[in-house]
Design a binder for these strands. Structure first.
Lengths: 217, 217
DNA sequence: CTTCAATATTAGGCTTTCCTAATCATCGCG
DNA sequence: CGCGATGATTAGGAAAGCCTAATATTGAAG
């Protein structure tokens, strides 16, 4: 058996590795809201159990076993999220929180049934791919919204999960997977993008825009 | 916050108190699969936190606060069970297990949404009343099946939850809430009851029969 | 009313998961 | 190349939960 804490660490390590280099201990600690010392301890436990390899000053990397576990957790998380949002009509940000709890107490049988009930969705409500029961995950497609040029039209395919504040904000703007956007203007010096979303026009910071994936039309 | 362990203890204390006297430490320990020492420790923690009162050699009793918590846990458990059985078509015995995990990680908002989605059911799949969000629980109605006389006809209203083996057995016999039964014969000396269930005739031990509630027709 | 079985408790330990404070190591910048 | 910031680690603890072994208490049955 594998504890909830361990699952949370594996998940965080996977997500940190997703955007770039292997996770450093401080980044991991920060993300999980624990001290560096605690994260360090846990990482050594994970290494002892063959779930990660750790090189000081380099970072933590999941082993094959660790990655398989992480993908399984992501699978559970994203299917629950789909259920909460689509079936129970729960708001995005609340759904993320709730799924964080449910993901750690879901047997394979339960998850498989849930998946069938939901119609085997490809992604979570934020557009992230749902890993299969066998541990496959579809490659991310789409480009950062920040890579578009003025005048480009595109459809949102993925928004960041995790931060509740960001989710509420994007939800309020109507920016969710499937939304069509037009780039009206791009301010210089890393400035904001001006977007048209339906009838509305809005300004979006470059940083956040780089974390939204779109598909050109 | 309240830990999963604490919730399991409260639930067990409630259920033990349901059938008779206040829970003794050994009974509690047995039910939870821990040693008497562990149960003793925990009971003292619960008392320290104002959730139970404990009199050695007498038993453990929930305080008002403790009972409110227990009812809330039961609410979550039974609604999840309803979902798992009705919506995901999970077998009874598996659903009980799964609900045991889910019940500890479900926010009030989630549970309220789930309840609405399910159509505000009155009972869990085994016929036990679902406590309301405000902590009310409907009184148990019905009589033990073992109290019927030969020739009586009745409808099952409640079967025991908890033990997976019992659930599988009853499920196999077709004995579930709503099932009509006729008492064909009652063996003397605490012997088994012979029942007709639909076309089938079967023998049921007196002990198990006393834990099945029915309503006379 | 005594004795024995059931119940309770103490003593001592283990693991997991977290913490603070303090020290040590490394990397990169000037 | 040396020094300061960042990162890593050690030392020492705490609380929750669990355990076994041993001891004390109590209630009920003879």
């Amino acid at each position: 058996m594998i504890s909830q804490s361990v699952e949370e660490y594996l998940e965080a390590i996977y997500k940190l590795a997703e955007d770039g280099a292997p996770a450093g201990i401080p980044a991991l600690a920060e993300r999980l809201g624990v001290s560096s010392v605690s994260a360090n301890e846990m990482v050594r436990r994970l290494e002892r159990d063959g779930l990660v390899t750790y090189a000081p000053y380099k970072g933590v990397t999941l082993t094959a076993e660790g990655e398989a576990r992480a993908l399984n957790i992501l699978r559970r998380h994203r299917l629950w999220e789909r259920f909460l949002v689509d079936v129970l009509a729960m708001p995005w940000e609340e759904a993320h929180e709730a799924a964080c709890g449910l993901e750690h107490v879901s047997s394979p049988s339960l998850i498989d049934r849930l998946e069938r009930f939901l119609g085997e969705p490809d992604t979570c409500p934020h557009g992230h791919a749902v890993p299969t029961a066998t541990g496959q995950i579809a490659a991310r497609n789409g480009h950062p919204l920040s890579d578009l040029a003025e005048g480009d039209e595109a459809v949102v395919v993925q928004v960041p999960e995790e931060e509740p504040g960001v989710l509420t904000y994007l939800s309020g703007l109507g920016l969710r997977p499937g939304t069509a956007v037009v780039v009206e203007a791009i301010a210089p010096f890393e400035g904001p993008l001006t977007l048209r979303v339906g009838e509305a026009v809005l300004a979006l910071g470059r940083n956040l825009a780089s974390r939204i994936l779109v598909e050109r039309k």
